[in-house]
Amino acid sequence: MSEHEQYAEDLALYALDALRGEDRARLDEHLATCAACRLELEQLRRDTALLALSAAGPRPPQRARQRLLDAVAREARVPKIVQASPQRSWWGVLGWAAAAAVLVCVALLLRDNLGLRESAISARSEAAKNARELEELRRIAAPIVDPGAQRVTLVSTNAPPQAQGKAFYLRNRSSLVFLANNMPALPLGKAYELWLIPVSGAPIPAGVFKPDAHGSASVVNPLLPAAIEAKAFAITVENDTGASTPTMPILMMGAGG
């Protein structure tokens, strides 16, 4: 029996979330290093989705619609400062570390604030504290995000500008902010893809991006597996829909510090 066959039945249980304990831990370990089994798991998840779609029954009661819309109306959308950042074209070398730190903090605080809305009254004072901190961070970020700000990138006078990228990764929150500038333009249909290189296992896609006219780009909080330890980050050129495995060559790479 091959290694993949050995895991075939456990993969089906995994897709159904019916595998627990040591069996699950053992399979998690195998999945981290086996692309074939990851693909089979994706297929099995599609199979289980068919089961979900087979459910049929009465429509929900009419009151449920209004109940939902009332709840939605009560939840004012928090402005997505972080989401606006991919459009910016001005990330200068000197401002990167501070800007990214602010972005990470803003993103985390926004997330915290959303979570706090669901909390009990006793959490309100904490929410107010976070709101004050968020306001302070916005004030600090203003010179960076204000379109009217003067932005200057300082580079060596002896060399042409080099493509640069910086990744800021919080493993315990699976939060990642990546900022790049001086990125070369890409052919039509192509995009850059950021990869998280784990300590063990295959590279994990961490966002597809295209630079703007000034060569600047960013990726903010891409979908990542939980708590993966990053050995390095890398960038390749892929089709603009992204890839599940990197296409060589690796254009840029940096090891975690």
Binding site: A52, L53, A55, A56, G57, P58, R59, P60, A64, R65, L68, L69, V72
Partner: peptide
């Protein structure tokens, strides 16, 4: 949100039920 609810609430409710 209302439109998505109208499209998919019966799927969601059927699965939950």
């Amino acid at each position: 949100m209302a439109e998505l609810y109208d499209r998919y609430s019966s799927v969601v409710y059927a699965v939950a039920l």
